[in-house]
Design a protein around this nucleic acid. Structure first.
Lengths: 339, 339
DNA sequence: TTGTATGCGTTATCAG
DNA sequence: CTGATAACGCATACAA
């Protein structure tokens, strides 16, 4: 089978017997074109199956690619998927498409993805930074006017727009909720590395709540795991302490899943639990899981709106947007202390 | 602040005192370049913060964009997110990036996304078709040699590669499992529209299993809902029948979630249940949910491998790949008939 | 209403 | 080893 060359504007023009410029005029509703010419051009476009070449067009007009480059840690995580969905729905009306890459939480991949996006001349960059990355190298892009927004976690070494959950306030409210039900020994199941921004903030919220209630901070009540299984192990360790916690606060959704599994399998469902970040099926669990819910879609939408403002010429100073969390009371967090 | 023009190859060349072509040679490891010249070029590249312009390069070499356009129904759905992750990890080594758009399950958006991808001259197209769409318009692209793979559901009106779950066989095995535990009245909770490929296939698998066991097909035992809430309603309707089913087969993950919620809230946990597609936390449910699990990552990887073969020149006829499912036994599907 | 000349940033070709 | 020139597909500026 012959590998056919794709028809160009010139091919269409030749077919009709006009110049490429005339075809261009028709396609872009530019200058005036005779009605008949327009129709013949359109006919030729259909006949040849002509598809305009965006790359060539963008280059000529000196415009950037009508795309937004998005870097997320992993595709399969519904949190980031929903963020991406929020972004896409908010920018669709502007004709912007989304180019997504996942960094697997490694700075190297993140950087190479960013470089690929820059080489494509994307109109804006949206980044969920991986744990150990640094963003100084993006300074020149910022001064060149490229909109850059950081999601879920702020930039490191760079002043830039960011949109994150109200992690600290949310965690504080979740832990305060447990305290209001009488708990005085509350365990914290977090993720690793402890240096991760969200982990740090939520941990601070946990301590804020303890302090506000006049409760002592006991570091033996803090344990971690990097996935659900490890979080389950951490939960079991906490429950095995000489003076075990009567309630647990899980610092993210994987930690919450791990804690739920551990409590269920060890028959310790009387231990109160509040998770950070909502889970599907949380309401069907036994007991139904009380959570501090994030709003990933709102994060995506807020970030998109910021980018659109920047694209419209807003040159005001970088702003950090805090997306509120919401305590969803379902049962697991309202169990009183026992044992 | 001055909106600085981005440095071009010519800028770098001028800085060094050479021609653009020499810079090009350095950057692409093309022809021979004096060691000293190479070093001076690299220095200038760093100094000016030069980023090659992929659009210009692609245009000149006549190559397609090193990107794969992926159309999925929705971003937030972890199934599609995981598929995308599988694709990305499989094509990363080839330097291909992923451009993703969501169609919201509408043919119009799907088509406009495809057009946008074609205008960008992507190297390949991967499509999860929305329910009512038709793909005849892609015929010319296929003959032009553009690799196109359909995911999760096959193409309509077009012969093309596809990678889908073994829906029919999987559903059959799930229903057969229920039958093997003594159930003779098994309800089917499906999604709408009933014309959807996956729905049709899984429903056929359900009927296959009944027939193989010599059980009659009773259409009153079939009900549907387009989301979890509607599926919960459908479940309640089935349970309220004069002769209610003793077991349920849920045709997808939303249907399964709805069924789980309905059974839990109505206190009918003794009704056996098998879902198609796995759910997070399925093992912690009461009873733990038995499912026919799909392998979204494997679907993505298989599709990516097919695309890579096509890009390497494989012109053999279109192939349909079936990705096997796996029955995961957890408890809900092993409850005997009661009542 | 339409055409001509020119250039976007890059690379292929052929000289030097 | 390096440079000059043309060309990729398209749109801008101006002329006809």
């Amino acid at each position: 089978m012959v590998e056919m060359r794709r028809p160009t504007m010139t091919d269409v023009a030749r077919e009709v017997g006009v110049t490429a410029k005339t075809v261009s005029r028709v396609l872009n509703d530019d200058g005036p074109v005779a009605v008949e010419t327009r129709e013949r051009v359109m006919a030729a476009v259909r006949k040849l199956g002509y598809q305009p070449n965006l790359m060539a067009r963008n280059m000529r007009v000196g415009a950037r690619d009508a795309a937004i480059g998005l870097v997320i840690p992993e595709m399969g995580n519904p949190f980031f998927g929903t963020v991406a969905g929020g972004i896409e729905s908010a920018v669709r009306a502007r004709g912007l498409t989304l180019i997504v890459g996942s960094s697997s939480e490694t700075p190297e991949l993140e950087q190479s993805l960013i470089a690929a996006f820059l080489a494509r001349r994307v109109s804006a960059l949206m980044i969920v930074p991986s744990a150990a990355s640094d963003h100084r190298h993006l300074r020149s892009e910022r001064v060149a006017g490229l909109p850059i927004v950081f999601l879920d976690r702020p930039a490191v070494g760079l002043t830039a727009d960011s949109v994150v959950s109200a992690n600290r306030a949310g965690a504080r409210s979740g832990v305060a909720h447990l305290i209001s039900y009488g708990h005085r020994r509350i365990g914290f199941v977090g993720d690793v590395p402890a240096a991760l921004y969200t982990r740090r903030e939520r941990f601070q919220g946990y301590r804020d709540a303890l302090e506000a209630a006049g409760l002592p901070f006991d570091r033996t009540l803090v344990d971690t795991g990097h996935d659900a299984d490890a979080a389950a192990q951490a939960t079991l360790r906490l429950l095995a302490l000489p003076a075990p916690p009567t309630a647990l606060f899980a610092g993210n959704n994987l930690a919450a899943m791990g804690a739920v599994v551990a409590l269920a399998k060890s028959g310790r469902k009387e231990v109160a639990l509040v998770g950070f970040d909502d889970l599907p099926l949380a309401e069907v669990l036994d007991p139904p899981l009380t959570v501090v819910a994030q709003d990933p879609e709102a994060i995506g939408v807020a970030a998109a709106e910021r980018v659109l403002l920047r694209l419209d010429g807003d040159r005001s100073r970088a702003r950090g947007t805090l997306v509120p969390t919401r305590l969803i009371v379902r049962g697991s967090g309202e169990q009183p202390p026992r044992g």
